[in-house]
Design a binder for these strands. Structure first.
Length: 587
RNA sequence: GCGCCCGUAGCUCAGCUGGAUAGAGCACCGGAUUUCUAAUCCGGGGGUCGCAGGUUCAAGUCCUGCCGGGCGCGCCA
C-alpha cells in the first residue's frame, strides 16, 4: 500500500503543503491549526472529485476573507500533477478534479493490497481493550445479547484493521446472588437426576432445561455424595461447576456466531485474589473515598429506604451526578466496587483505551464508569461506553413477544440456526448501535435485495461467476491479481467504471471514519452502496453488450475490466471480513 | 423530579464529527430479460429534518428551552 491509497488523505497533505508554501511567501500567516480542514468527496459529483473547506476554515485564523485565501490556494493546487481542474465555488469551497490516470492508479492499489485493502497503521499499535457480551453466566445467550455481541466483535475487528492492538474481552459476572440461585437450581436438578420427584421448579429458581445435563453429569460422577449435605457444604462447589458449565454454553453460543474472545475475566476472581482491595485502595490513595450518607433517590422510592452511612467514591468530582457506594450496609462490596477493580485491572494490564459495550438499560451506569476510569488513571485513560439499543423480532409483520417469566425468549442459537450466522451478523449492523433495530425473520429468509446480506453477497458471487467463466472462455488469461494489476486501465473509460473506481478509493477513508466514530454500521452501508454500483454496471452491460466484462475479441479491455471487478471483489471481501461474514463465491 | 438515548419522505432508516439543491430501501406508478446469474437494473412522484430561540461565512448536525417516545435512578448484578 502506498501513500496514495487514501486519496483524500493524500490531497489533504497536498493542500496543507500548499498552504505552508503560501505562508512562506507571506501570502498567508504561518502556524495555523488545520484540525477542521477537511478533504472529502462533494455530495454532488458535478462539483468535482474532491472538495476542501480550507479557505472557510482558515478565514478566522488568517483574518482574511475566504475568497482571498481560496484564490492563491486554488492557483497552487492547479499546478499539482494529478489535478486537472480547480474552481472556487459557493462561499469558498475549492473543488478539484483529478485526472483519470490518478484514479485508475487507485485500482492498482486495490489489486496490490487484495483483501487487506483499507488496512492502515493509523493507530500505530496502540493497545485497546474491547469488552462485550459479558452476559450473566446463568444460561444460554438469547437475542438480547446478540446485538452487543456482533457490534463489539465487529468494532474490535475494525479497530484492528486501523492498527490497534485489540483485546477482545468478556467479563464474567460470577460473584453475585444470581450465581447462588444458579447453584441451587442445579442442585435441585441434581436431586431430580438421582430419581427424586421435585415437582414444579419453584419461583425464583432458573427453570431452564439446559441445567439438566449439568446436574446429570454431577450425579454420574459423584453419585449422591452432595444430596444429604447442608447447603453451605455444597454451594461453593455447585457454583463453580455450574458457572463453568454455563460459560461453556456461552462460548459455544458465541462460536456459532463466529465470535471468539481472548480474555474471560472473572468477577469472582477479583474477590478471591484481593483485586477489589487493590482497586479501591488506588482510589483511597488519591483521597477519593469517604464515609457518608446519600440523599434518597428521587422518583421510585424504595420501600425500605433509610439513611445509612456508606463507603462512597467521589464520583461527582469526575462528572457523575452523585457519589457512588462501594460497600453495602453489611460491609460487602457492591457490584460497582467490582467494576472499579475491574477497570483498575485493565489499566494495570496497559489498556489506556477501553471500550465497554453495554445494553441500553445500563445507560445510567455510563457516567460513573467514566468517572472511575478518569479517577484511576489520573485522566490518562479513556473509556468509551457504547450502548446498544434493543432488538425487536418480527415474524409475519408481528412482533415476537418474549418474556423471561414465561421462559419463551428466543435464544441466540435458535436465531443462528434459523437464518444463519452471516445474516444475523450483517443484519445487526444495518442500524446505528444507539437506534432500536427490528429484526425481520421474513426479510432475513428472503433471497432478494430486501435482505442486505444477500444483496452484497450476490454482487461478490456474480464477480466470481464471471471469473470462473473467463477461465473457460479465455483459458490463456492470467487471472492472478498481480497480473491483473498490470492491465491497461486506460481501457476503462465508461463513467460507470470510473465511478466504481472512485468508490473503491473511498474505502480506506470509510474504514478510518467508521473506526474513529466506533460505528461499524457504516461498513454495512458502504458495502451496500458498492454492491449497488456494481449491480448497476452489470446491468449496463446487458443493455450495451460492448460494456460487458468479457469481450472475446479484445483481451486488453477484458483484462482491464476483470481487474476492475476483481478489485470490487477484494473490497467487498475486505468489508465482509471485518463484519465476520463470508463472501459467497456462488449462490 | 433528575440523568442518558432517540425524533429526518406514507413505512424502516442513512446523512462521512458544521458544508453547497437533505439521500437510500420498502411501498406506489412506468420501463428493461434470445443474461457475463433479471435473486438484478433504469425512470417517476413524495420533506416545515418534532417546535421555538441562539451560536457563524454556513445548522438535520453544536448550545438553551419546550413537546413527544424509550431506558435508568442506594443495601440487584
Amino acid at each position: 500500500m502506498n501513500q496514495f491509497a487514501n486519496p483524500y488523505a493524500y490531497i489533504r497533505e497536498q493542500v496543507i503543503a500548499a498552504i505552508a508554501a503560501l505562508a512562506e511567501q507571506g501570502v498567508l500567516p504561518g502556524d495555523m491549526d488545520f484540525a477542521n480542514l477537511a478533504v472529502e468527496a462533494p455530495r454532488d459529483p458535478s462539483h468535482g472529485d474532491v472538495a476542501t473547506n480550507a479557505a472557510l476554515v482558515l478565514t478566522k485564523q488568517a483574518r482574511m476573507k475566504p475568497r482571498d485565501i481560496a484564490e492563491p490556494l486554488a492557483a497552487r493546487l492547479a499546478d499539482l500533477a494529478d489535478v486537472t481542474a480547480v474552481d472556487i465555488a459557493g462561499p469558498g469551497f475549492i473543488n478539484l478534479r483529478l485526472s483519470d490516470a490518478f484514479w485508475r492508479a487507485r485500482l492498482g492499489d486495490v489489486l496490490t493490497a487484495g483483501p487487506a485493502y483499507g488496512d492502515s497503521k493509523a493507530a500505530n499499535g496502540a493497545k485497546i481493550n474491547v469488552e462485550y457480551v459479558s452476559a450473566n453466566p446463568t444460561g444460554p445467550l438469547h437475542v438480547g445479547h446478540v446485538r452487543g455481541a456482533v457490534y463489539g466483535d465487529v468494532l474490535a475487528n475494525l479497530l484492528a484493521k486501523v492498527g490497534y492492538a485489540v483485546c477482545k474481552e468478556y467479563y464474567i459476572n460470577d460473584a453475585g446472588a444470581q450465581v447462588d440461585v444458579l447453584a441451587r437450581s442445579v442442585h435441585l436438578r441434581y436431586r431430580e437426576a438421582l430419581g427424586e420427584e421435585i415437582g414444579a421448579i419453584p419461583e425464583g429458581m432458573y427453570p431452564g432445561d439446559y441445567l439438566v445435563p449439568v446436574a446429570r453429569a454431577i450425579a454420574e460422577r459423584d453419585g449422591d455424595k452432595w444430596r444429604e449435605l447442608a447447603e453451605a457444604d455444597w454451594l461453593a462447589d455447585f457454583r463453580r461447576i455450574s458457572v463453568d458449565a454455563m460459560m461453556d454454553l456461552v462460548r459455544a453460543d458465541l462460536a456459532s456466531l463466529g465470535i471468539e474472545q481472548e480474555v474471560f475475566f472473572s468477577e469472582e476472581g477479583l474477590h478471591l485474589k484481593g483485586g477489589i482491595d487493590r482497586g479501591v485502595a488506588s482510589l483511597a490513595d488519591k483521597g477519593l473515598i469517604y464515609t457518608g450518607v446519600l440523599e434518597p433517590p428521587k422518583g421510585k422510592m424504595p420501600e425500605d429506604w433509610e439513611p445509612r452511612p456508606q463507603t462512597l467514591f467521589k464520583a461527582s468530582e469526575f462528572g457523575d451526578d452523585v457519589d457512588r457506594p462501594l460497600q453495602k450496609s453489611d460491609g460487602a462490596w457492591t457490584y460497582f466496587a467490582a467494576d472499579v477493580a475491574y477497570h483498575y485491572d485493565k489499566l494495570q494490564r496497559g489498556y489506556l483505551q477501553m471500550v465497554d459495550v453495554l445494553g441500553a438499560d445500563h445507560g445510567g451506569y455510563v457516567k460513573r464508569l467514566n468517572a472511575v476510569v478518569k479517577a484511576l488513571s489520573g485522566g490518562e485513560g479513556t473509556l468509551d461506553v457504547r450502548l446498544c439499543q434493543m432488538v425487536r423480532l418480527l415474524r409475519g409483520g408481528e412482533v415476537v413477544v418474549m418474556s423471561k417469566r414465561a421462559g419463551n425468549f428466543v435464544t441466540l442459537r435458535e436465531l443462528v440456526d434459523e437464518v444463519g450466522r452471516d445474516v444475523v451478523r450483517f443484519m445487526m449492523l444495518t442500524r446505528k448501535n444507539d437506534a432500536p433495530l427490528d429484526f425481520d425473520f421474513d426479510a432475513a429468509a428472503e433471497q432478494s435485495k430486501d435482505n442486505p446480506v444477500f444483496y452484497v453477497q450476490y454482487a461478490h458471487a456474480r464477480i466470481c461467476s464471471v471469473l470462473r467463466r473467463v477461465g473457460e472462455e479465455l483459458p490463456d488469461l492470467d487471472l492472478h491479481a498481480e497480473n491483473l494489476a498490470q492491465a491497461d486501465f486506460s481501457r476503462l473509460t465508461d463513467s460507470a467504471e470510473m465511478d466504481l473506481i472512485k468508490q473503491m478509493a473511498a474505502w480506506p477513508r470509510a474504514v478510518d471514519i467508521a473506526a474513529q466514530a466506533r460505528e461499524p454500521h457504516r461498513i454495512a452501508f458502504y458495502l451496500n452502496e458498492l454492491a449497488s454500483s456494481f449491480h448497476a454496471l452489470w446491468n449496463k452491460g446487458n443493455a450495451e453488450p460492448n460494456l460487458r466484462f468479457i469481450i472475446g475479441s479484445d483481451q486488453a479491455v477484458t483484462q482491464a475490466r476483470l481487474a476492475l471487478i476483481q478489485g470490487v471483489a477484494f473490497v467487498l471481501a475486505s468489508g465482509l471480513e471485518v463484519m465476520g461474514v463470508k463472501p459467497a463465491e456462488s449462490m
